[in-house]
Design a protein around this nucleic acid. Structure first.
Length: 819
RNA sequence: GGGGUGGUGGCGAAAUGGCAGACGCAGCGGACUUAAAAUCCGCCGGGGGUGACUCCGUGUGGGUUCGAAUCCCACCCGCCCUACCA
């Protein structure tokens, strides 16, 4: 018997699998397909234990599906554009390309040590010209479809990274940059946007996907649909001033209006007397950092413009104010203010002495505008509101609320407004003022404006001979050769766009590129697409709930419009894993010194043990702190499996009962582990395998089971463990003379008859408390079970001679006697 | 402030209406050993009892139920998302 030496055995099998193309994933129309996908890594330099935690269970499940008879695709690649590469270039004078590709090479090796079933022929790297050519092609398609546009807008800008950020990349209460933590500032720039808002409504429909509730809730909140009405106010100067409100029923209580400081009408409306004050306020608002501006508990500020608008429902003259609690980016950047029934408006009105008119009367009686301490937002009945007086007000939103329905009907009938919905979701800002990204394929001609680069000139190559400045300003801006070109339409000297695309653009469609990473006629080979798409099972971290996972859904809907796909959703099912923390229960980081390095662990324990431990130590979706002692459990498991697998079993004295017990356990375990894999319950699957191991250890000691029962148990053990620990199981499978490869075997069948218990422990309760336990044959009739329970000495004692009022029997489990 | 999610032995966790703590780590006792490691056997939520047993126990307080870690209500604590969104 040889000793278990994973450091030697694992690389050998990896090499053989690679040489045999065991994991080549090819179209096979004779089998059902399963596209399993794990989120692709950024090539940061080293494979982190977090990558292992995300990828090994995904791999194990993909392997399980393969054993279940599916033709499984499980690809891998790199999200290779992005800021860290550029920061490394600035800091250490390494070219981003050199840095990135060296990291990729290193990580490929580390990924191989994991023993996953990745098909490396399908590897895609988003920074390869072969790849970003199609990223650029998609950009052009989006322009053609009217889903991309250029706009001057105030955008979030990180002064440290020297680039704009998408709204989703601005984090925290202090609104800092996702990458470097610097508080962002607002900057007016010409930027490219994708019209994600076109699909706001469809993105709210999750009916075709089996995704975690959590993610659906987060996306729903992020999209932020609210329904109400658009109402057009008219200023005394004659300008139309549309507003959006969720409470059109309170229109009769609107006593003033508020515009965002950036609102385009501010200059026009402000009277000469108020001009100084308004100008000053606006400058102050602009200078104010977002931290201060967005603090919700901050006291309201604002200034009167001197202008008035007419409330269309009652022709009342209402003053127009400017205040920074109204945001330009939502709705129309202007609101009607109803201080009686909106807390923000109430605070503003109180501060500036503006009138308050209640239009909803609560059940407790009329509100007193002069003394009410806060806005009233509850139910009641409409008052002071002309024709809709007397309508009931409920807590419901939208038309379900009778008062809102009545108000909308009134607005439509009087041509003063329309029912409307509004979304919090904004269009996706994709321009980045950085070098290491896919260049935006646009040329600016003095005559023709923004002209997309013709297809035959794609990709617009990222020049490599660039000089980095410590400011982080994009070197593309200073690269003469890149910058100067001619207009594709008229040949006139023109300038290239120097911005690159947000890397989320690259990762929005990578699952398609994996199908055929070298295909030259289209983003992916339609033959491959017809077979493999869409993704059946996606796995990854919850942190992408509102970014990547919304973008890729948007992208797929846009691709449907392009005629590239005929389905609506990119990933049918999603499962989120948690995070591995350091032993100190903190997020792993170099500065904390709590980083667990997978390479060291593989060196010490072997990949199989690391894989098994990662799947065993906690519920996958939960995550938790790493524990160096805990890994001993899986280590012992594999050591035992090694010994069991090599043991030349000979029974000493065959015991029929022991044989039946082992067979029962074997079949129960097959059933349990299969179910657990199905449900991503990997920790309990490993636990079940450990139990079978315990039974096999007993059998090995007592030598009382038949050779057939022993072999059945051992072979099953190896097959069940194969997806989790692929190397050791392959080795033992071979040593036992079984056909290569264990990873091409079918999942073992379980037999319900064999798995069935022949006796059960009947728990006997009196009034819900356990008073006895009886071993009875599993096929005992219900009446006999009840009788046996009642006959129990302890039960009689607790019944104290009284007749039972009721006897409840739970089949196969318990009898509860109620006295 | 709003939304979500979680709270179970010394620790990681099982159990989603029916024996709380499967499986594992650590610990304790024993075997083997000159010794240690490894391995093997046993114990392992708390209190009481020589014992058969018994009482208490799943963040706190109520409720529903024959029966609640599990369902409902309120509260406390942790984590995540979001935040003047009209």
């Amino acid at each position: 018997m040889s000793s278990y030496n994973p450091q030697q055995l694992e690389p050998q099998w990896q090499a053989k699998w690679e040489a045999d193309g065991l994991y080549r994933q090819r179209i096979d129309s004779g089998k059902p397909k399963h596209y399993a996908l794990t989120m692709l890594p950024y090539p940061s330099g080293d494979l982190h234990i977090g990558h292992w935690y995300a990828m090994t269970p995904s791999d194990a499940r993909a392997r399980f599906m393969r054993m279940q008879g599916y033709n499984v695709m499980f690809p891998m690649g790199f999200d290779a554009f992005g800021l860290p590469a550029e920061n490394a270039a600035i800091k250490r004078s390494i070219h981003p390309k050199t840095w990135t590709y060296a990291n990729i090479e290193r990580m490929r090796g580390q990924l191989r040590s994991m023993g996953a079933m990745f098909d490396w022929e399908r590897e895609a790297v988003s920074s390869d010209p072969d790849y970003y050519k199609w990223t650029q092609w998609f950009f052009k398609k989006l322009i053609e479809l009217g889903l991309a546009y250029r706009k001057l807008s105030a955008v979030d800008f990180c002064p440290n990274c020297n680039t704009t950020l998408a709204r989703e990349q601005v984090w925290g209460e202090d609104r800092h940059c996702e990458r470097c933590g610097t508080p962002v500032i607002k900057k007016d720039l010409e930027q490219w946007f994708f019209k994600t808002t076109d699909y706001a409504e469809e993105l709210l429909d999750f009916s075709q996907i089996n995704w975690p509730e959590r993610v659906k809730v987060m996306q729903t909140n992020w999209i932020g649909k609210s329904s109400g009405a658009n109402v057009t106010f008219t200023t005394e100067q004659g300008d139309e001033m549309p507003i959006f409100t969720t409470r059109p029923d309170t229109l009769w209580g609107a006593t003033f209006m508020v515009m965002a400081p950036e609102h385009p009408l501010v200059d026009k409306l402000t009277t000469p007397e108020q001009a100084d004050a308004v100008l000053q306020y606006r400058e102050q608002a602009q200078r104010l950092s977002d931290i201060d501006r967005e603090a919700a508990d901050r006291e309201k500020t604002g200034v009167f413009t001197g202008a008035y608008a007419i409330n269309p429902v009652n022709q009342e003259r209402v003053p127009i104010w400017v205040a920074d609690y109204v945001l330009m980016g939502y709705g129309f950047g202007a609101i009607m203010a109803v201080p009686a029934h909106d807390q923000r408006d109430f605070e503003f009105a109180r501060k500036f002495g503006l009138p308050i008119i209640p239009v909803i009367q609560p059940e407790s009686g009329p509100l007193d505008a002069a003394t009410m301490p806060e806005a009233y937002v509850g139910p009641g009945v409409m008052v002071n509101s002309g024709e809709i007086n007397g309508t009931a007000v409920s807590d419901d939103k939208g038309r379900k609320n009778p008062s809102i329905a009545a108000a909308i009907d009134w607005l439509v009938a009087h041509n003063a407004g329309d029912e409307a919905v509004n979304y919090r979701l904004r269009d996706w800002l994709i321009s980045r003022q950085r070098y290491w990204g896919a260049p935006i394929p646009v040329i600016y001609c003095p005559e023709h404006g923004a002209v997309p680069v013709p297809d035959e000139q794609l990709p617009v190559m990222l020049p490599e001979d660039v000089a980095f400045t410590p400011t982080g300003e994009s070197p593309l801006k200073f690269h003469e050769g890149f910058l100067h070109t001619t207009c594709p339409e008229c040949g006139r000297p023109s300038l290239r766009e120097t911005d690159t695309m947000d890397t989320f653009m690259c990762s929005s469609w990578y699952q398609y590129r994996y199908l055929s990473p070298h295909f030259t006629d289209a983003p992916f080979d339609p033959v491959e697409g017809a077979y493999w798409l869409p993704v059946d099972q996606y796995t990854g971290g919850i942190e992408h709930a509102t970014m990547h996972l919304i973008y890729t859904r948007f992208f797929t809907k846009a691709m449907r419009k392009m005629g590239l796909v005929n389905f609506d959703e990119p990933m049918l099912a999603l499962h989120n894993q948690g995070m591995v923390l350091g032993e100190d229960n903190e997020k792993m980081s170099k500065s904390r010194g709590n980083v667990v390095a997978p390479d060291d662990l593989v060196q010490q324990y072997g990949a199989d043990t690391v894989r098994t431990y990662l799947m065993f130590f906690t519920r996958w979706e939960q995550g938790g702190p790493w524990n160096y002692d805990g890994i001993k459990g899986p280590q012992r498991l594999l050591q035992d499996v090694w010994e069991i697998g090599q043991y030349a079993y000979m029974p000493q004295q065959v015991d029929e009962q022991a044989t039946r017990n082992l067979r029962r356990k074997t079949h129960q375990t097959i059933h349990k582990v299969g179910q657990d894999f199905q449900e991503f319950s990997f920790n309990t699957a490993v636990a079940a395998i450990m139990e079978l191991r315990n039974n096999l250890n007993d059998a090995k000691r007592t030598r009382s089971v038949t050779v057939a029962a022993w072999n059945e148990a051992v072979d099953s053990l190896l097959l069940l463990l194969a997806p989790i620990a692929p190397h050791i199981t392959e080795e033992l499978w071979a040593q036992r003379g079984k056909p290569y490869s264990i990873h091409q075997q079918a999942w073992p069948q379980w037999d319900e008859e064999i798995a069935k218990e022949d006796s059960i422990t009947l728990v006997v309760q009196v009034n819900g408390k356990v008073r006895d336990r009886l071993e009875v044959p599993a096929d005992t009739a219900e009446e006999d079970m009840k009788a046996a329970a009642l006959a129990s000495e302890n039960v009689q004692r607790y019944l104290e001679g009284k007749a039972p009022r009721k006897v409840i029997l739970v089949k196969g489990k318990l009898v509860n006697i109620v006295s």
